[in-house]
Simulated assay, not measured.
Amino acid sequence: MRRIKTDESERGVVAPLTAILLVFLLGMTALAVDVGMMYSEHAQLQNGADSSALAIAQACAASPPAAACSTPLSSASVYANGNAVDEHSNVVTATVNAGTVDVTTESRDDAGNNHLSLVFARVLGIDTTVIHASAQAKFGGFMAGNVFPLSFSKCESDPGFTKALQFFPEHGNAIADMPGYECVTPSSSGLEVPGGFGWLDHPAGSCTASVNIADPWVGTNTGHNYDSDCATLLNKWGAILSQPGGTVDILIPIFDDVRGTGANAEFHIEAFAQISLRGWNFGGGTKLPKDYMTPDATVLHDQLVADKDIKLKNSDNGIYGEFIKKVSLAELGTLGGPTTYGALGAKLSN
């Protein structure tokens, strides 16, 4: 019989390969376990920084300011430790300056060392790592931002409104007085706030009106035609809505009172209505930017025109959309407004 020869040069290869693979496997274990632990630590630190910054800002916004405003470092430590699973976090900085609170936290172990102790990464010579998280909050007077210069009466934007897609008629159209569309709300002065909507005053060349929470009376822009300053924005909305699945959600100021007449009329803004836009008919136009309707808005339009009780005319102005919810002035507001009226608040800003 012939003897099968073996390759003696391959003896002992398994041992070094196993050693190499073991290092690789340990490295993967370190990646899976230690990195996961690092992510968890950062999430805890971020929660601690966020809650600390917001709590201190709220303390500073109180009248008079609460104690946490004058002792931000010790106050931040309480919230940072409270948001840590092991109840150990280090607050590196916690400062209050010009309406802004900044907080930075970092990891801390049970022994008081400002680092996170790793487990499997020690095999690779990495014993610890330092993790930081930062947060910023602002406090002061609320000041609402700029919005589309169109305003609805409060009763047209009732959160209990059950209609889905609907037509919001402009004030002055006959349809606004029809059952189901009539909208009158007694005001504190005993007057009735007219239904429909009206254009608001705004700077020339701009398509935004500013609403200030401290003094939410906004002048009206007389006339029924669409605002030519909004042509670019309306064309943009039309282009988005014409795409499959395209949606445009807008915030419309809601007024609950009116004073003055004609060019001197002013609306008192109470909140904002979030509306999913489907189209509009401004100034009796037949194409963008004056007029645009999605297919479902066109169906609704044709139904309203055909309804003998409503008798909508093609020249009647308004917008088509679905009311989503009411947004308070404070929810939309940015901080930095006057504090004369006591409209103080605090928000996370970073």
Rank of each mutant, 00 (worst) to 15 (best):
K325N: 10
E331R: 03
N114G: 00
D307F: 03
A263S: 10
T105K: 02
L118P: 13
D177Y: 02
E331Y: 13
K313W: 11
Y39P: 03
D302V: 03
C155T: 05
D50L: 04
S206E: 14
E41A: 15
E270N: 07
A49H: 05
P253R: 00
F255S: 03
S206N: 09
Q58W: 05
T105C: 14
D201Y: 04
G262T: 05
A55P: 10
G36H: 00
G279R: 06
L124K: 02
L191F: 00
T95E: 08
F120I: 04
D127L: 01
V91L: 06
V130G: 07
A164T: 11
Q46V: 15
A57V: 10
T162C: 08
N317I: 05
S210Y: 04
G205D: 11
L329V: 14
E322T: 08
A68N: 03
S206M: 11
T339K: 12
S52H: 15
N83C: 05
C230H: 08
R108L: 08
M1W: 09
K347I: 13
H224R: 03
T100N: 06
S157F: 13
L300C: 08
N113P: 08
D7P: 04
G195H: 10
S228C: 01
A174P: 01
N146S: 12
Q58E: 11
D215F: 11
G99Y: 05
S117Q: 15
A133H: 05
Q44P: 02
S9W: 00
P16Y: 14
G198L: 11
F323R: 01
V96Y: 10
F282H: 00
D307R: 09
V14Y: 06
F267L: 11
L22P: 11
H202R: 15
A98S: 05
A239R: 07
P289F: 12
G180C: 06
K154W: 03
T298Q: 15
G145F: 01
T294Q: 12
E182L: 09
A273I: 12
N47T: 07
S70F: 09
S89T: 04
H171W: 05
A111I: 02
H115L: 02
V92S: 09
I56H: 02
A214R: 00
R3Y: 03
A137R: 00
Q136E: 14
F197S: 10
